[in-house]
Simulated scan of single mutants.
Amino acid sequence: MSAERPTGGSRLVAVEQSPATGPIPLRRRRVGGSELRVFPVGLNGFGFESTVDTDVAFDILDTYRALGGNFIGTDASKEGRSEAVVGRWLRSRGARSSVILAATAASGVDSPGLGHAAIARAVDLSLGRLQTDYLDLLLLGPHDAAVPFEETLLAVDGLVRAGKVRYAGAVAHDANRLVEARVIAAMLGVAPLVAAQCDYGLANRHGFEGSVASVIADQGLGVLPRVPFSVPTSARRRRRTLAALDRIASEHHVSPATIAFAWLLSRPGVCAPIAAVSTVEQVLDLVASTTVQLTRHQVAALDRASE
């Protein structure tokens, strides 16, 4: 199904700066150097793959959109049910032109690896299931040692030229891989990556903060944290984190999950965390994080607890 493409010239809503709290997330954030403007928190459709029935999924998507949400991520390497659900919802609501769609191409049964043919097939499958003719953002899965990175980036460039993909980003790439991507893109004369999706949150800061975060900042990439909706409790450090979350959540009269996402939104470079949800209530907690104003003391307390 053909969908109307958005045109350029949309107004960028900036992130205001407050002397008391740092960045205050507003209704749209720019993804790296792209023209994409997304709601500060996104929905990951992975939860629709097997655990959420279609009626509940539609309620979740309707609620998110009604609250201003416009950023939905799917996974092109999975069985495809989540994309089919999102596609039916987009068509029934006539919502394609107002939604930013991101799909991940990685290793799957139908499209293994990051070679030219695999990426092309993964994108075509996603487009068919999503009932659209373009993706706003194609996220490249983790390193495929069997495929030269030049081949991957040229494949993406071909999809951009064909109008099937607007922009590309990376999933779980380390600092060296991100540097390599920028160098190769410059050598080949193709568009550079604009975003990086990383496992990042209060419970798993240290894999991101450091060299990866530094390279992302240098390249001006939009950070799209991929996080579980709840904070695990399996380690002492995470228990300390939960205690701090509980205390600060009570001060703001919101859920601990809301505070966890509010903390992420206060981090440098973070564009929009993407979370898989299974209930409407979780959507409400997620969206509430965009209006929570953490004090510097509260941010520091969460930093200490999660170290």
Rank of each mutant, 00 (worst) to 15 (best):
L127A: 04
L193N: 07
A196I: 13
I216K: 04
A95G: 06
H143C: 12
V231D: 10
H173K: 13
G108K: 02
A235C: 07
S214N: 15
A305W: 03
A106V: 00
R5V: 08
L178F: 11
A181Q: 14
A14R: 14
E281N: 12
S278Y: 00
L202Y: 09
G169N: 03
S126K: 09
E251N: 13
P142K: 06
T291D: 11
G115R: 04
V147H: 04
L302H: 00
R205L: 04
A203C: 08
V13I: 12
S77D: 10
T7C: 10
F71T: 06
P225G: 07
L127K: 09
G69T: 02
R37V: 12
E180P: 01
T295V: 04
R161Y: 00
V109G: 03
D110I: 13
I72A: 04
R91W: 14
F46C: 08
E180S: 13
P232Y: 01
D59S: 15
V31F: 03
S278R: 13
S214L: 12
S289L: 10
T152F: 05
A272K: 07
A103R: 06
E35R: 08
A185T: 13
D136V: 06
L36M: 11
H252S: 08
P148W: 12
I184Q: 09
A14C: 00
A195P: 05
A260G: 12
V52W: 02
R121K: 12
S278T: 15
D75P: 01
V85E: 09
A186P: 03
A102H: 10
L265W: 09
K78I: 11
A120K: 09
R240T: 11
S266K: 10
V13W: 00
S214V: 05
R93C: 08
L139V: 15
G42T: 06
L140I: 09
A213Y: 04
G220W: 05
D75I: 14
P273I: 03
S107Q: 06
R91P: 09
L26H: 15
S278M: 14
P148G: 11
G87W: 01
A305G: 08
P40I: 09
L26G: 15
